[in-house]
């Protein structure tokens, strides 16, 4: 085939592919897909997986300090779920022809990203409430919309994850209720956590659509189903009454209902801070990756021993068979 005809064939495949997407059909692992689609998916899905895995750290930080046995069990179960979600997502991403160890290497060398929210430190028990309620809440907004993403394994993973995550947000909100309706000191703790985590949670939806590098292409391919700004607006709207119920002060003083838009108007976010944290100035950027590398390196001898044991066993079986 000449290069020219190759290009033509490619072009036709792309047209057929887009028609399939437009028709709301799912793309499955062995299907033909444009290289850009595959790359874009690997980027988004592995980032999502890494976020679950790195996200274990800020909350894992409080398992041994949880103030009641029930809370300890709930938090542990939740953090364990996150490991599970990371694993679902890694395995869904592996269907695109990249191995988990390649993804992990990309995370550890900094070529792959994770959600910047996990670069913020967890300082009090209230932060366990705020993270479950706001951070998981924001993540769920995004994930609910991703249940309709065009890549089959990703969509199915999201359905499973959403089902499990609904308890995460509720347990967080319940922590907040206990604190906000508890002693004055507890209420103060709740307000402080809300103040610190509200803004970074809104930033989790990513930059404005106009500034988002991958947004347009992702929407066209239906990898993303709703824009960053639309999802963020949804989250802002739904959080207002939740803050009210807690009897806490809303961190956004400029928040006002807009009858015409049927949405809340709110302050613009501090994008300088957003990029500053992404670019390494968060309290925990280096710590999170170093923690991951340390666990990985400390586990190396275990993984080697497993491989050696397996080899010995195979050899034994082969000798017995002979």
């Amino acid at each position: 085939m000449s290069d020219h005809t190759k290009l033509e064939v490619e072009h036709e495949l792309e047209i057929a592919f887009q028609a399939k997407i437009d028709d709301e059909q799912k793309v499955e692992p062995k299907d033909w897909m444009p290289e850009g689609y595959r790359k874009n998916l690997i980027r988004q899905m592995s980032q999502h997986a890494h976020s679950e895995v790195i996200g274990m750290q800020p909350e894992g930080n409080w398992i041994t300090r949880a103030p009641s046995l029930r809370r300890k069990a709930v938090l542990l179960a939740k953090v364990q779920d996150e490991a599970g979600h990371g694993l679902y997502l890694y395995s869904a991403t592996e269907t695109l022809g990249i191995s988990r160890s390649q993804m992990i290497e990309a995370l550890q060398t900094g070529t792959a990203k994770y959600a910047s929210i996990f670069n913020y430190p967890t300082q009090t028990w209230g932060d366990m409430g705020a993270i479950g309620w706001l951070v998981d809440g924001a993540a769920i907004c995004n994930q609910v919309s991703l249940q309709r993403t065009s890549y089959g394994p990703y969509a199915r993973g999201m359905i499973r994850i959403c089902k499990e995550e609904s308890f995460h947000q509720r347990q967080g909100y319940q922590i907040m209720i206990e604190l906000a309706h508890g002693t004055p000191a507890q209420k103060k703790m709740a307000q402080d956590s809300l103040n610190r985590f509200y803004w970074p949670s809104l930033m989790m939806f990513g930059p404005h659509d106009s500034d988002s590098a991958h947004s347009a292409k992702s929407m066209k391919w239906k990898i993303k189903r709703e824009t960053n700004d639309d999802l963020r607006q949804k989250f802002i709207d739904q959080t207002v009454s939740q803050i009210e119920y807690l009897g806490l002060e809303h961190p956004d003083k400029a928040l006002v209902w807009n009858e015409e838009r049927n949405h809340y108007d709110s302050s613009d976010l501090d994008w300088d801070e957003f990029y500053s944290v992404i670019n390494g100035n968060g309290h925990c950027n280096r710590q999170r990756i170093q923690h991951h590398i340390k666990a990985h390196e400390e586990g190396a001898w275990v993984r080697e021993a497993m491989a050696a044991y397996k080899q010995k066993k195979q050899l034994k079986n082969a000798t017995n068979a002979a």
Binding site: G60, T64, A77, V79, Q80, G299
Partner: peptide, 24 residues
């Protein structure tokens, strides 16, 4: 429970979490 996020690989993190949960 101190093993959470410190296991030799992800599957083992989850398994150790289950053991810790059983004891708690």
């Amino acid at each position: 429970s101190e093993w959470v996020s410190n296991g030799p690989f992800l599957e083992e993190d989850i398994a150790l979490g289950n053991v810790a949960l059983d004891y708690i």
